[in-house]
């Protein structure tokens, strides 16, 4: 618990290697994320030289290993998987006219699922078709998984296609357990 931050995932375990068919689950809850919401959100993105043409429910790799995720035309998440979360107070004041910062650093746990059969495994928990032909790289689904709400984003991380999953932090332990259980039948297979 360096920096005074503690991940909501209490059951964290050493992730399996990300090779072949094996699935790996990573806890990125202590990685940096922020966001902005409101009618002025897109305008604010422009002032920050970030893309403003994202369709709702898409995600894009932008500069410096960062990702920009659009949940609607007026809500954007900035994800920095390889940077550490800050221990400062989350900003609350409007960043521009009708654009307010999000508290997503603290509200949501960030889990990352990697490996070949990740869509098959997710089909055990989630009613949305997450296979490549229905849920291509760059797509985002706000849906439910194991009876809880989740945001699933399909993107590249360290050159590997992964699902980033954001769940309410109070349900992080539950989500981790449900995912690990569903993964167990895939864990042994390698190729």
């Amino acid at each position: 618990m360096t920096s005074g931050l503690a991940s909501p995932v209490g059951a964290a375990q050493v992730p399996a290697p990300m090779t072949g068919k094996t699935l790996a689950l990573h806890d990125l809850s202590l990685a940096l994320r922020s966001g902005v919401r409101g009618p002025g959100a897109a305008d604010w993105l422009r002032t920050q030289s970030m893309p403003t043409d994202l369709q709702p429910n898409t995600i894009e790799n932008i500069s410096n290993g960062r990702l920009l995720m659009a949940l609607s035309t007026r809500e954007f998440w900035l994800l920095e998987p390889d940077a550490d979360a800050s221990a400062a107070a989350p900003p609350s004041a409007a960043v521009a006219t009708e654009a307010w910062p999000l508290y997503n650093q603290h509200s949501h746990a960030w889990l990352v699922l990697a490996g070949g059969p990740k869509a098959d495994m997710m089909a055990k928990l989630c009613g949305v078709d997450l296979r490549e032909n229905a849920f291509a790289l760059g797509q985002v689904a706000q849906t439910q998984m194991a009876h809880i709400s989740v945001i699933v984003a399909h993107h590249l991380w360290r050159d590997t296609p992964v699902f980033s999953m954001f769940v309410d932090q109070s349900l992080a332990d539950f989500a981790w357990t449900a995912l690990s259980d569903a993964m167990s039948e895939f864990r042994a297979s390698t190729d």
């Binding site: 503690a6 209490g10 809880i148 309410d168 109070s170 332990d173 449900a178």
Partner: peptide
């Protein structure tokens, strides 16, 4: 099937 009973825990649970 498998039972999904989501239980919310506060960060202070442990």
């Amino acid at each position: 099937g498998r039972r999904f009973h989501p239980v919310r825990k506060t960060p202070l649970d442990s």
